[in-house]
Design a protein around this nucleic acid. Structure first.
Length: 693
DNA sequence: GAGCACTGC
């Protein structure tokens, strides 16, 4: 490390230099995104003046149907705007001001802060609504924070969202599926109810996209949409790049951290890497480097942060570093937007991110490591400037930055559209091709989803939703799970299938404890193992969890995630209400695993696979080679019947199937193949394959 | 014979 930091630092702007007045809307991330900043300024100059003052902003909302607000994290838009609106009478006559967030924690914490500022009890004038928690009052709540998913769901009940006078869609730049669906639906609602005011709030210049979106094909005229911007309260962040690319950014990250520690003053360090494995390796490399460093005054405290950690483990990153120590947090993308840590002065950004994409042709989800977008890199850099001026070290050359995509493709372009399309149908939007998407999902994705909905009887040949489809659409789980729940009456296993659905909807109930190798977790899981496979193993784990008092300590000693198990309890209770509403008897199959497994088949018959002599499986649909995920209880065993049903498949290094259960191939024949046959004209999966047994 | 970015209803 004697050579020191081999970074090139842009000379034009240093920490503390102030930026052009107008570029303040971009935050003070110096030199991070020149092309990006100028795009924003240009767009704003062309269209409208920048409103910075409260009264002007209100005026803007008053006169325009849709206001696009640009302002980055910390500018107060989320907490202040709804209050301004409230004070100027937008919540009069029993109307409600809504503000949506993509995440539950954001909705709850912001609601808490605003209630405090207003001097109200949370749940009274200011409240929040998220899944499983409604801390609001139907009569009294005037400012309501909620997840965008909840507001979208509300449109199923009240299609014009009549109780709201203003709806603010926050963090629109994140482009979650529900944000996109909501924007489309809100544009439609505004045609029928022009009095509804919209505020679309974004941290980035995507804002111009939304401005154009709300103007396009709208009879409301040019002046109906406006951009406003709010000043942030960020400190400047200097950005440094590598002179040349590195082969091993994990190693480089450790070196840069060591170098910062030796050469720079106090302040914690946040390192962005792509996954758990990289995080652990980086911290190992760092501990090897430390003894070789010159003596420093401060001690370095290494911490990991990723979603796989328990809540307590995650809390460690928020604890203030003890005097004479410096925290270094190696984190996944979770620290980019979901988790905010104060006191970070240095950010080290590897420049990559793991992203999930869906291939509609093969029905395969895959997880790939790809370069981050300019928007992501900017957001990551900003994490260094929340409490004081900071530095961001990007582990790639500046020339590589210029080639990054401006933003990550929205989720709607890389996800299975089956459930979203069914929900649009439930809203009466039958022609999804004509729906005004902010970004349209790929045509192939829409076609495959419609095919799937038709094959499973959710829609008819005319494309309209069937009676079963309407029930499934209401149920807040994926289509396969809902179908399975609704056939529970037929198989007399309502109690059990409800638990299986809840446990399947929750990912990662079984955890690999930190430090202990997989073997220990494996041993614990074996205690719940059912011969038939993972679905019944999950059922056993859930039943044991409730039998032993739903305790966190019990989960810890049985390699189960308390967080996941508690979620399963909530989901089960919620799904139970839907089953009761639709009159499905809550019977127990009294240990008859055949009934339960037949019921699983009713929802997932499309996910069947046949065992091959080499230990892999072949999918019935598509004849793909599949590998059992190592967390499956069938990882080590051949299924007695030679056939399994799986919950999902995902491509990483190999194509893997997760959550599988042994089935009889004959059970496949009873489902869904007829419609599919008629449509494709081909011999169908289930029928064709069962002949081979 | 070996693994998993992050949300949300």
């Amino acid at each position: 490390m004697s050579g020191g930091l081999k970074f090139w630092k842009p000379g034009t702007a240093g920490p503390g230099s102030s930026l052009d007045r107008e570029t303040e809307t971009e935050g003070n991330v110096i030199q991070s995104a020149p092309a990006y900043a100028s795009l924003s300024i240009q767009a704003q100059r062309e269209h409208l003046p920048i409103y910075k003052h409260r009264d002007k902003l209100l005026h803007c909302i008053e006169t325009h149907g849709v206001t696009i607000v640009v302002g980055q994290t910390g500018c107060g838009k989320t907490t202040q705007l709804p209050q301004y609106l409230y004070e100027s009478g937008w919540a009069a006559d029993g109307r409600v001001i809504a503000c949506t967030q993509p995440r539950r924690v954001a909705a709850t914490s912001v609601a808490g802060r605003v209630a405090n500022e207003v001097g109200s009890v949370l749940g009274d004038e200011v409240g929040y609504t998220i899944r499983f928690e409604d801390v609001s009052d139907k009569e009294r709540t005037r400012i309501l924070y909620m997840t965008d998913g909840m507001l979208f769901r509300e449109t199923l009940v009240d299609p014009l969202l009549t109780r709201y006078s203003v709806i603010m869609i926050d963090e629109v730049h994140e482009r979650s599926v529900y944000t996109d669906l909501l924007l489309g639906v809100l544009k439609k609602i505004r045609r029928k109810r022009p009095s509804l005011r919209l505020i679309v709030s974004s941290a980035t210049v995507d804002a111009t996209t939304f401005l154009e979106y709300f103007r396009a094909n709208t009879p409301l005229g040019d002046a109906e949409a406006a951009i406003a911007s709010l000043e942030g309260r960020m400190f400047p962040v200097e950005v440094a790049y590598l002179r040349a690319p590195v082969a091993d950014y994990v190693r480089k990250a450790a070196e840069v951290v060591a170098d910062i520690h030796v050469k720079h003053g106090p302040g914690d360090i946040l390192v962005f890497l792509t996954g758990r494995e990289e995080i652990e390796r980086c911290l190992e490399e760092l501990s090897e480097l430390l003894p070789m460093l010159p003596r420093t005054a401060d001690k370095l405290v290494p911490l990991a942060l990723h979603a796989g950690l328990s809540t307590e483990e995650q809390m460690a990153v928020f604890e203030r570093a003890a005097p004479g120590t410096r925290k270094v947090i190696a984190s996944t993308n979770i620290a980019e937007a979901s988790v905010t840590i104060n006191g970070i002065k240095y950010v080290v950004d590897c420049g990559f991110v793991k992203i999930r994409t869906y291939n509609p042709t093969t029905a395969l989800a895959s997880l790939a490591t790809v370069p981050v977008s300019v928007a992501s890199a900017t957001q990551r850099a900003g994490r260094a400037g929340r409490t004081s001026a900071g530095i961001c070290y990007r582990l790639y050359p500046e020339s590589a930055f210029a080639n990054l995509p401006l933003s990550t493709p929205p989720e709607i372009a890389r996800t299975d559209m089956t459930t979203p399309l069914l929900q649009l149908k439930a809203l009466g939007i039958d022609d999804v091709m004509k729906f005004e998407w902010v970004t349209a999902p790929p045509a192939e994705s829409v076609l495959r989803a419609l095919e799937g909905l038709l094959a499973t009887g959710m829609i008819g040949e005319d494309g309209r939703m069937t009676a079963t489809g309407a029930k499934v659409a209401e149920c807040p789980v994926e289509v396969g799970l809902a179908r399975m729940l609704f056939s529970a009456g037929e198989y007399g296993c309502g109690e059990e299938v409800l638990t299986v659905a809840a446990m399947t909807a929750v990912q990662d109930a079984f955890v690999i404890p930190d430090g202990a190798p997989g073997a220990l977790a494996e041993l614990e899981r074996r205690k719940f193992t059912a011969e038939e496979g993972d679905h019944l193993t999950l059922l056993n784990a859930y039943n044991a969890f409730t039998r032993y008092g739903k305790s966190a300590g019990w989960c810890r000693s049985h390699a189960l995630s308390f967080r996941a198990m508690s979620r399963a309890v909530s989901i089960r209770a919620q799904l139970k209400k839907y089953m009761q509403r639709f009159g499905i008897p809550m019977k127990s199959c009294e240990g008859d695993a055949v009934k339960l497994r037949k019921c699983l088949v009713s929802g997932y018959y499309r996910n069947a696979a046949r065992w091959m002599a080499d230990g892999t499986y072949r999918s019935v649909r598509g004849n793909q080679t599949l590998h059992v995920h190592p967390t499956s209880v069938l990882f080590t065993r051949k299924p007695r019947t030679g056939w399994v049903l799986f919950h999902e498949m995902e491509e990483t290094k190999k194509t893997q199937i997760r959550i599988l259960t042994e089935i009889e191939p004959d059970w496949l024949l009873e489902h869904g193949h007829i419609q599919q046959d008629k449509r494709t004209g081909k011999a169908v999966d289930a029928m064709a394959m069962s002949g081979q047994k």
